[in-house]
Amino acid sequence: MALLELRNLHKAFNGQTVLDGIDLQVQQGEIVVVLGPSGSGKSTMLRCINYLETPDKGTITISDQSVDAESAGKKEILALRRKTSFVFQNYALFKNKTALGNITEALTTVHGIPEQKARKKAMTILEDVGLADRHDAWPSALSGGQQQRVGIGRAMALDANLMLFDEPTSALDPEKVHEVLDLMKKLARQKRTMMVVTHEIPFAREVADRIIFIDGGKIVEMGTPEEILDNPQDPRTRDFLRQVL
């Protein structure tokens, strides 16, 4: 059984169709990279999976939790959301919390883990992301790359079934991109289930089990990195790859 299943997902903003019937299955431990031109709906799809955007129609299932957009209740949505973690393009660290506090926050308030234990876990994660020495720094004192590593650490701490990455390197200075990608590769090696919206083609080639190409709110094509990147079938995929490569 798939870990994530999207069925016939639709979303429109002010009458403009953004998702036009997405069907997708993601297996446990799979790393899926989502490519597509800007405005293609790839970020919206990711944000619908954890209900940061409310889909208009369709169902989302993550392991045993299923939510139908047309009859979704608050509790179901919360339960679905807690099966995911999310890494934002603009990091979105809690500005009123230190690096450590950003990671412990959900552990104590959502999962009821005692403060001491949460701090210990958070310190281990900060070591993983290479920022143990900056544990008491405010987000405003960290560089973009450091903030995003804390952002990934915050997501890691949740031990969610599915990690969602929404263009995690797009806001970074070019020389900071690799530190974030390196960390994501490390996560990939741990066989966490990840969905990554990105424009980093070399990363997709190296890490992805499967690449999905989205355009006009539809999945145009999907396959292994070799299939999609070296031998794209659809003209839209070829156009896109010509422009970014």
Binding site: L52, F86, F88
Partner: peptide, 20 residues
């Protein structure tokens, strides 16, 4: 984005208000 981040880590809206 602060509310979105709080929701993404599994907080309900009231907790997000109070804590973040």
């Amino acid at each position: 984005s602060q509310m979105e981040a709080a929701l993404s880590v599994g907080m309900d809206r009231l907790t997000a208000m109070r804590r973040i």
